[in-house]
Design a protein around this nucleic acid. Sequence first.
DNA 1: ACAGGTTGGTGGTCAGACCACTGACCAATA
DNA 2: TATTGGTCAGTGGTCTGACCACCAACCTGT
Lengths: 235, 235
Amino acid sequence: MFKEIEQKKIYLQILEQIKDNIIEGNLKSGDRLPSERQWAEQLGVSRATIREAVRALEMIGLVRCQQGEGNFIAVDYEDTLTQPLTIMFWLSKAKISQIQELRRALETESAKLAAKHMTPERYEKIEKICRAIETETDESIRAELDKRFHYEIAIASENIMIKNVLLSSASLIEALIKDIRIAILDDPHRGPLIDQQHHIILQAFQNHDPLKAAMAMSQHMDLIDDFVSQLEPDD
Amino acid sequence: MFKEIEQKKIYLQILEQIKDNIIEGNLKSGDRLPSERQWAEQLGVSRATIREAVRALEMIGLVRCQQGEGNFIAVDYEDTLTQPLTIMFWLSKAKISQIQELRRALETESAKLAAKHMTPERYEKIEKICRAIETETDESIRAELDKRFHYEIAIASENIMIKNVLLSSASLIEALIKDIRIAILDDPHRGPLIDQQHHIILQAFQNHDPLKAAMAMSQHMDLIDDFVSQLEPDD
DNA sequence: ACAGGTTGGTGGTCAGACCACTGACCAATA
DNA sequence: TATTGGTCAGTGGTCTGACCACCAACCTGT
């Protein structure tokens, strides 16, 4: 008979407005938001309310706050999920191996899509990184290159959702196991094997063979699985 | 020589405290937080600051705020990612097919892990849902059962990270395409095919065959892929 | 031309106030 | 007695106005 009257919290309304403005193109990465005082006046709300909205937006990585300078739309949304994912990890008392399984799922799908959409330019870029890994001797640089290898594949997947979730989970793992890449790359048993696996993945890319790329990446992930389960035995 | 002095924003310090308290077991799902006034006094900060922290926590689904009642730790963290994922989707102007690809990656891995860890009790539960789907005629109930089918598999995967990301992306898709399940299930061509696919998945579970489960689920996802790409043609 | 301080604007925090809402208690009523 | 409706204390939601720390840009005297 009577409709329920529902008053959305103001900060959610502000979020809506920002979303709409971004979709319409009025607001884009790096843009500066109105100053809090000015904005509050425009919207007819108090500064405290604006600040609550800004705080919520900052939490999910959409807004970057710089004291004395202003509030800005984030330059990229890659880290939008890192914070929430980290929280979720702690709260649900998950184990590192579970994130690794998550990463495996995304990494293989990412490789699959990358093989599907691979372009000569991107292939060359990734292959160059691969070659650099083989010749580099400094372990921390090798680790950095390995990171870029996966990063470029994620880009080449042309799926921004997978890319972002993948990067977030990867950085969560790295935050939990400091220098995990170095530890894995540096093992003399694994080193050559990794280079070989990289080559198989590359080859799958070159042949636009999604299935083979996925399988190769999955085997590549096995290495990391082993490493993780080794330092985090099953209960 | 000298370390940079960094004054973390207060709301981040509060987040840290909550995290620690949860990890130590002092704070658990559904628990009530101190009232804002009381809490502010305890921590020696103003209520506005407390509120900014609460707002940030609410945004990522960790805290539920009920006017006149109090602030509570969320009963589950399943929705921790839904909001950020939704924002990310809008901001990066992603396409629905990209979320679907994300979901595919997680759904197949979820099935794989579920087959690995399947117990008789869980199998029975899932099989029961499957049978109910076949006999049910009301399409909206069928859709609800289908949702539970996937939900139980996610639970059976025993990977809470994958489960939560999966559920978030699934609910994002459903938010974007209202009644997508009904639309897919209701197609007379697809109906029997779906039941058949469910059976294959079940069988893989029964045989503890991760690979087969993953493949079956992947084929199951093909159906949804088709549906999505049909109403969202490539650019 | 330049090193110095000044100044206006920004976000960060605070204190105190009022409103809307909830739940529990209690009195009046049928 | 059982139900209704009011009261009240406590909660989150919002507002106001103030002060601080910080930054960038503009002076200003050398």
